[in-house]
Design a protein around this nucleic acid. Structure first.
Length: 453
RNA sequence: GGCGCCUUGGCGGAGUGGCUACGCAGCGGCCUGCAAAGCCGUUUACACCGGUUCGACUCCGGUAGGCGCCUCCA
């Protein structure tokens, strides 16, 4: 079990994860009012792979990624579509599962829905009201920011000059412009609501995550993650709610991923420069999308575009070529095993996936240089294991079956042509094989067929 | 205005006070009947100006440009 360190947003320090007890990870998932874009996919991939790595290191780990299916945006999007908001949310939740499923990384250990956590949410708000951290006002309930001393400690903001809201006109019901809604009374045109001690309504943004995180992981839990754009106000407010209510720490480590950018601008629905995950998967495939996402350090912004995606695909091809020639099976020699160790070391050091990938590529080059080096024996086995950690294990799979009879017949014919040095005929057959989707590679041990990229 | 971050070779993107990141692309070469794959070499990368230092891309200060959050946002 390696010592794993993660950069903590609150302290700015690299914190070592505890080696005792369960590692609980809560990552903020999407608000389901539309299909998710590639930027939304980043935290899903980062935290899924982090959990995978921790489990492989022997850490008991539980990853929870929520679905926020109650939100103003859902109401407005449903009205626009002319369908019930519950229907829209259910549809987009299903689309989210399908889109993220397409990444081939499996599911998180828990995927709670806000609509299924209303009971704990109401209970949490009641506690806050009882403790004097929240107050009812016209059917709404607001969190009293000034009642929580630590407010601002995550985002490092002075409470002066802060105001917040969800863009509605509820401000007049607040005692203080800093306060934010925990519960919102049902309004005209809203077709879903839940009963509460304050009348029918629904949870505000933020409170659902406090409730779901605690329900799934307890409090405190180890890592709370999400996009860096959630630091304020979302995560700041989660801390305020949970710590004010329970009087103990909420999460030990705050881990935030950087934004995906197009033309140095954040990909955002409001900017209109979005690229849906499903589109990226359709156009490039899961392996390319995952390789692209692990090509940069999770905390840094990552440039998006055709170039980066195609480069990721080309890099994958290099790895795939190697794995084709060096299938898994043989035990890794000393140097191959050392490369795998360094790969894991890089992941243990603030989950540095690009540095880990360097180890993968370095191993490929070394093994290609010295195919007979006993220390590098079993490099294919080592590499496949490394890549599996970052969701690219499928590169080691041979794909859908070998060449069919027709292709093999052509290959035989070409071999015969080459035998008699009939190069024109051989090249002609090579073209025919290309049309069937096979690329011919002549090697020392004869010609072989490889699926064309 | 407040808080924070960034600026690396054609592109993407790590990293370190002195030692090749890596990948992609280009160019030259090796191998090959020709290709492909692979290997080798290659275009002296660290925004700018000062400072600290024996030595800075890597620390400090400033300049320019860019970005994020402060309102919904992964």
């Amino acid at each position: 079990m390696r010592e794993v360190r993660i950069r903590d947003t609150m302290s700015g320090d690299l914190l070592t994860l505890p080696t005792e007890g369960e590692i609980g990870i809560y990552a903020c998932g999407p608000t389901v009012y539309s299909r998710i874009h590639i930027g939304n996919a980043r935290p899903f991939v980062v935290f899924s792979l982090l959990a995978r790595f921790l489990k492989s290191e022997g850490y008991p780990t539980k990853l929870a990624i929520n679905v926020t299916d109650i939100n103003d945006k859902i109401y407005s999007a449903a009205i626009e579509r002319g369908i019930p908001s519950g229907e829209l949310a259910a549809e987009m939740t299903a689309a989210y599962f399908e889109d993220t499923g397409g990444l081939g990384l499996g599911r998180p250990d828990a995927e709670p829905l806000a609509t299924e956590t209303v009971g704990p949410i109401v209970a949490l708000i009641e506690t806050l009201v009882e403790e004097g951290h929240a107050y009812e006002s016209g059917g709404d309930v607001y969190f009293s920011v000034r009642s929580f001393e630590g407010y601002g400690k995550l985002s490092h903001r002075p409470t002066e000059e802060m105001e917040q809201g969800e863009g509605d006109d509820a401000g007049s019901l607040k005692r203080d412009p800093l306060d934010f809604a925990l519960w919102k009374a049902r309004k005209e045109g809203e077709d879903t609501s839940w009963d509460s001690p304050w009348g029918p309504g629904r949870p505000g943004w933020h409170i659902e995550c406090s409730a779901m995180a605690e329900a799934e992981l307890g409090q405190p839990f180890t890592i709370h993650g999400g996009g860096s754009d959630l630091v304020f106000p979302h995560h700041e407010n989660e801390i305020a709610q949970s710590e004010a209510a329970r009087d103990r720490q909420f999460a030990k480590v705050w881990m935030h991923n950087g934004m995906i950018e197009t033309g140095s601008e954040k990909m955002s629905k409001s900017v209109g420069n979005i690229f849906q995950l499903s589109e990226a998967l359709d156009a490039y495939g899961a392996e390319t999308v995952v390789a692209y996402l692990v090509s940069g350090h999770y905390r840094q912004p990552l440039a998006f575009g055709e170039g980066p995606l195609e480069q990721a695909a080309a890099g994958n091809e290099r790895l795939r070529n190697f794995l084709r020639e060096n299938p898994s099976g043989e035990q890794p020699g000393q140097e191959a095993a050392a490369a795998a160790d360094r790969f894991r070391d890089a992941l243990a050091d603030d989950f540095n996936t690009p540095r880990a990938m360097r180890e993968a590529f370095d191993l490929v080059r070394a093994a290609n240089q010295s195919p007979d080096d006993p220390g590098l024996a079993g490099s294919g086995t080592a590499l496949a294991g490394m890549l599996d950690l970052v969701g690219l294990g499928s590169l080691a799979e041979s794909g859908e079956g070998g060449p069919d009879a027709a292709a093999l017949e052509l290959l035989d014919a070409r071999n015969a042509a080459r035998e008699s040095k009939d190069w024109a005929r051989a090249d002609e057959i090579r073209d025919q094989l290309a049309e069937l989707g096979w690329e011919v590679r002549d090697g020392a041990e004869g010609a072989r067929l490889v699926p064309r990229g």
